[in-house]
Design a protein around this nucleic acid. Structure first.
Lengths: 193, 193
DNA sequence: TTTAGGATGTTGTCAATGTCTACATAGGTC
DNA sequence: GACCTATGTAGACATTGACAACATCCTAAA
């Protein structure tokens, strides 16, 4: 039960604290030793759970994508294909806003550079879901004359782009405030409406 | 005349080599000392030009945005507002594909975190240009019934998203290949058409 | 109940790195 | 020809990622 030795649950504590630190000070600002200090363990303790810094970042990303998939999963209640698509995009953006630290980590090339098989598999799962929703929407008579792959490209671009623009500091200030959320909906509806 | 001391033009050499290194090994993989070794100068020589690693990365980003602005600048020849908008978006995406290293650097939170005033000013310039093109397009009768700020949000999201999706390893494989370029055009036209 | 073995932490160590300080030299200016 | 500044060098230090050797707790098999 909640086993573990001196600490209790070091692995999860590392993940949590690391997520905070990265969102505050970036990947550069994250150090395994600093993490160990924060949690009151010895400098090498983290290595028992993550052999390398990249491995830790990757684990955070896995958690993140899992959370994203979960957040965009409660979509099945909606009837029409387009409504589901819309709900999914908005759920994505809302998730990115609510979990901007995780979202930033997923966007960080230095994290994705070392993506594990687990992680890429999860991302593939999510992409499949998007493709599937496109198909369903087309079957319910939405943009039936357009190449599904073009719609997919558009969806992914727009979704990722919107999440970034509403989330990253550099854009946030310049774009869409105030009333960001309602503008996001209007923007999405340019595609889905 | 190509002045300078032992090296010749260390500053530019640092920028160039650093850009290469970052695109190969990421920001984490970039080290000032490694850079110095590559260029055959002493370990502290780079500090004469960039007091800190962040400063170097920032300088690269400034170069990058400058190049982007230049690349999207040859747009004025086009007549209609929408055609100009279209040309600008495609120029952006093409630039991102042709200069994916620079594009990645601009997308890296660890770079943007330390953005200088110069850099943010350049980015603001680019954003202004985008806003202006939207206005021109609306004046030539494109989507006149839509809030310009919503169009701006949509444009920025779609542009950034498309560049990312066609450029970053994780997406590239899964989206739009083959014939990426023609799909990109088709996707953009869903918005501009 | 004891005990072997794995999981988890600790301490010690090493090379590499960012950054600082003190020193050297080249080139242009008065 | 004597300075001054830009540029580069040499040395030093704290921090870091990573490895190895050792310690301790926990569990399951005997």
């Amino acid at each position: 039960m909640n086993t573990a030795y001196h600490h209790g649950n070091l692995r999860q504590a590392l993940l949590d604290r690391a997520t905070e630190t990265v969102s505050e000070k970036g990947v550069e600002g994250l150090s395994l030793r600093g993490l160990a200090r924060d949690l009151g363990v010895s400098h090498a303790a983290p290595l028992r759970h993550f052999a390398t810094k990249a491995e830790l970042l990757n684990a955070i990303a896995v958690e993140g994508v899992g959370s994203l998939i979960e957040a965009t999963g409660g979509v099945d209640a909606h009837p029409s294909g387009v409504a589901r698509l819309r709900a999914m995009v908005l759920a994505y953006v809302d998730w990115a806003i609510a979990n901007s630290e995780l979202h930033h980590i997923l966007r960080n090339p230095d994290v994705m550079r070392h993506a594990s098989d687990d992680l890429t598999a999860l991302l593939a799962t999510f992409a499949d879901r998007q493709r599937q929703e496109i198909k369903a929407a087309q079957e319910s008579d939405w943009r039936t004359d357009t190449d599904p792959e073009v719609l997919f490209l558009h969806l992914v671009s727009l979704t990722a782009g919107t999440a970034i623009v509403t989330t990253e500091e550099i854009y946030k200030r310049r774009v869409a405030a105030p009333e960001t959320r309602s503008k996001v909906e209007a923007s999405i509806d340019l595609f889905l409406g």
